[in-house]
Amino acid sequence: MEQSFAEIHRENYRRQANGYGIDEAFVSLLVESFYAKVRADKDLGPIFEGVIGDRWPAHLARMKTFWGAIALKTGDYHGRPMPAHLKLKQVEPWHFDRWLELFAQNLDEVSPTPEAKNFFNSRANNIARSLMTGMFYNPADDLKDLKP
Protein backbone atom coordinates (compact mmCIF):
# COMPACT_ATOMS: atom_id res chain seq x y z
CA MET A 1 0.00 0.00 0.00
CA GLU A 2 1.32 3.39 -0.97
CA GLN A 3 1.85 6.03 1.72
CA SER A 4 0.06 9.33 1.45
CA PHE A 5 1.95 12.60 1.33
CA ALA A 6 0.78 13.32 4.90
CA GLU A 7 2.10 9.98 6.16
CA ILE A 8 5.45 10.53 4.45
CA HIS A 9 5.64 14.05 5.91
CA ARG A 10 4.90 12.78 9.45
CA GLU A 11 7.47 10.02 9.08
CA ASN A 12 10.16 12.45 7.89
CA TYR A 13 9.26 14.90 10.67
CA ARG A 14 9.58 12.15 13.31
CA ARG A 15 12.86 10.97 11.83
CA GLN A 16 14.24 14.51 12.05
CA ALA A 17 12.98 14.91 15.63
CA ASN A 18 14.55 11.60 16.59
CA GLY A 19 17.81 12.82 15.04
CA TYR A 20 17.65 15.76 17.44
CA GLY A 21 17.23 13.37 20.37
CA ILE A 22 13.50 14.00 20.65
CA ASP A 23 11.45 10.94 21.47
CA GLU A 24 8.60 10.07 23.83
CA ALA A 25 11.00 9.64 26.76
CA PHE A 26 12.45 13.11 26.21
CA VAL A 27 9.00 14.69 25.88
CA SER A 28 8.02 13.06 29.18
CA LEU A 29 11.19 14.33 30.90
CA LEU A 30 10.70 17.80 29.45
CA VAL A 31 7.11 18.06 30.69
CA GLU A 32 7.78 16.59 34.14
CA SER A 33 10.84 18.75 34.82
CA PHE A 34 9.27 21.92 33.40
CA TYR A 35 6.08 21.68 35.44
CA ALA A 36 8.12 20.95 38.57
CA LYS A 37 9.70 24.38 37.97
CA VAL A 38 6.32 25.98 37.32
CA ARG A 39 4.87 24.55 40.52
CA ALA A 40 7.84 25.86 42.52
CA ASP A 41 7.74 29.32 40.93
CA LYS A 42 6.46 32.08 43.22
CA ASP A 43 4.52 33.77 40.40
CA LEU A 44 3.24 30.90 38.28
CA GLY A 45 2.91 28.22 40.94
CA PRO A 46 -0.13 29.68 42.70
CA ILE A 47 -1.95 30.24 39.40
CA PHE A 48 -1.41 26.68 38.25
CA GLU A 49 -2.19 25.21 41.67
CA GLY A 50 -5.40 27.23 41.85
CA VAL A 51 -6.59 25.92 38.50
CA ILE A 52 -5.21 22.38 38.51
CA GLY A 53 -5.42 21.54 42.20
CA ASP A 54 -5.16 17.80 42.72
CA ARG A 55 -5.41 16.99 38.99
CA TRP A 56 -1.68 17.24 38.24
CA PRO A 57 -1.29 13.67 36.94
CA ALA A 58 -4.04 14.27 34.37
CA HIS A 59 -2.59 17.67 33.42
CA LEU A 60 0.91 16.25 32.97
CA ALA A 61 -0.44 13.41 30.84
CA ARG A 62 -2.32 15.94 28.69
CA MET A 63 0.79 18.12 28.30
CA LYS A 64 2.85 15.07 27.29
CA THR A 65 0.23 14.28 24.65
CA PHE A 66 0.22 17.94 23.52
CA TRP A 67 4.00 18.22 23.20
CA GLY A 68 4.24 14.73 21.69
CA ALA A 69 1.77 15.80 19.01
CA ILE A 70 3.86 18.89 18.30
CA ALA A 71 7.29 17.26 18.41
CA LEU A 72 6.51 13.83 16.97
CA LYS A 73 3.37 14.48 14.90
CA THR A 74 1.52 11.76 16.81
CA GLY A 75 -1.92 13.18 16.06
CA ASP A 76 -2.97 12.20 19.57
CA TYR A 77 -3.82 15.64 20.95
CA HIS A 78 -7.38 16.80 20.39
CA GLY A 79 -7.73 19.59 22.93
CA ARG A 80 -8.56 23.25 22.53
CA PRO A 81 -5.99 25.29 24.47
CA MET A 82 -7.45 28.73 23.76
CA PRO A 83 -10.82 28.32 25.52
CA ALA A 84 -9.06 26.85 28.56
CA HIS A 85 -6.63 29.77 28.73
CA LEU A 86 -9.33 32.38 28.22
CA LYS A 87 -10.81 31.30 31.56
CA LEU A 88 -7.60 32.29 33.38
CA LYS A 89 -8.54 35.79 34.47
CA GLN A 90 -5.58 36.10 36.86
CA VAL A 91 -3.04 35.66 34.05
CA GLU A 92 -1.35 38.80 32.73
CA PRO A 93 0.92 39.17 29.68
CA TRP A 94 4.10 39.17 31.78
CA HIS A 95 3.22 35.68 33.06
CA PHE A 96 3.96 34.39 29.56
CA ASP A 97 7.45 35.89 29.74
CA ARG A 98 8.04 34.05 32.99
CA TRP A 99 6.62 30.82 31.50
CA LEU A 100 9.00 31.13 28.54
CA GLU A 101 11.92 31.93 30.84
CA LEU A 102 11.31 28.76 32.86
CA PHE A 103 10.79 26.74 29.70
CA ALA A 104 14.11 27.92 28.24
CA GLN A 105 15.88 27.30 31.55
CA ASN A 106 14.45 23.80 31.64
CA LEU A 107 15.56 23.14 28.07
CA ASP A 108 19.09 24.27 29.00
CA GLU A 109 19.08 21.56 31.66
CA VAL A 110 17.44 18.63 29.87
CA SER A 111 17.84 19.00 26.09
CA PRO A 112 19.87 16.21 24.54
CA THR A 113 21.06 18.45 21.68
CA PRO A 114 21.13 22.12 20.69
CA GLU A 115 18.69 21.24 17.89
CA ALA A 116 16.17 19.85 20.40
CA LYS A 117 16.51 23.00 22.48
CA ASN A 118 15.96 25.24 19.46
CA PHE A 119 13.06 23.10 18.23
CA PHE A 120 11.15 23.38 21.51
CA ASN A 121 12.07 27.01 22.21
CA SER A 122 10.76 28.02 18.81
CA ARG A 123 7.47 26.21 19.26
CA ALA A 124 7.01 27.43 22.84
CA ASN A 125 7.48 31.02 21.70
CA ASN A 126 4.93 30.56 18.91
CA ILE A 127 2.44 28.99 21.30
CA ALA A 128 2.90 31.76 23.88
CA ARG A 129 2.49 34.44 21.20
CA SER A 130 -0.68 32.79 19.93
CA LEU A 131 -2.18 32.47 23.42
CA MET A 132 -1.25 36.03 24.33
CA THR A 133 -2.83 37.33 21.14
CA GLY A 134 -6.01 35.38 21.84
CA MET A 135 -6.17 36.46 25.46
CA PHE A 136 -5.06 40.09 25.31
CA TYR A 137 -5.35 41.45 21.78
CA ASN A 138 -7.52 44.52 21.52
CA PRO A 139 -8.13 45.79 17.96
CA ALA A 140 -8.67 49.29 19.35
CA ASP A 141 -4.98 49.36 20.27
CA ASP A 142 -4.14 49.20 16.55
CA LEU A 143 -6.21 52.31 15.91
CA LYS A 144 -4.12 54.31 18.38
CA ASP A 145 -1.16 54.02 16.01
CA LEU A 146 -3.03 55.44 13.03
CA LYS A 147 -2.48 59.09 12.29
CA PRO A 148 -5.56 61.09 11.15
Results as ranks from 00 to 15, higher is better:
1 M>Y: 05
1 M>W: 07
1 M>Q: 13
2 E>Q: 15
2 E>T: 15
3 Q>T: 13
4 S>Y: 04
5 F>S: 12
7 E>I: 07
8 I>K: 15
8 I>Y: 03
9 H>S: 14
11 E>D: 14
18 N>W: 00
19 G>P: 00
24 E>L: 07
25 A>C: 00
26 F>D: 01
27 V>P: 04
28 S>G: 10
28 S>F: 00
28 S>P: 05
29 L>R: 14
29 L>H: 01
29 L>G: 00
30 L>C: 07
32 E>C: 05
33 S>W: 00
34 F>I: 02
35 Y>S: 07
36 A>I: 00
36 A>S: 11
36 A>E: 13
36 A>G: 07
38 V>K: 04
38 V>W: 00
41 D>F: 00
42 K>N: 08
42 K>W: 00
44 L>Y: 02
47 I>G: 07
48 F>N: 07
49 E>F: 08
53 G>K: 14
53 G>R: 12
54 D>H: 08
59 H>R: 01
61 A>K: 10
61 A>W: 00
63 M>Y: 01
65 T>C: 10
67 W>E: 01
67 W>R: 04
69 A>R: 02
72 L>F: 02
72 L>N: 06
75 G>I: 09
76 D>G: 15
79 G>W: 02
79 G>V: 08
82 M>L: 15
89 K>P: 02
90 Q>R: 14
94 W>S: 14
94 W>T: 12
103 F>M: 14
105 Q>V: 04
106 N>V: 03
109 E>F: 00
109 E>C: 08
110 V>W: 04
114 P>A: 11
119 F>E: 03
121 N>K: 11
125 N>R: 13
125 N>L: 09
127 I>R: 02
128 A>V: 11
128 A>E: 07
128 A>Y: 01
131 L>I: 12
134 G>C: 08
134 G>W: 02
135 M>G: 09
136 F>L: 11
139 P>Y: 06
140 A>F: 03
143 L>A: 14
144 K>R: 15
144 K>N: 09
147 K>H: 08
147 K>P: 03
148 P>E: 13
148 P>Q: 12
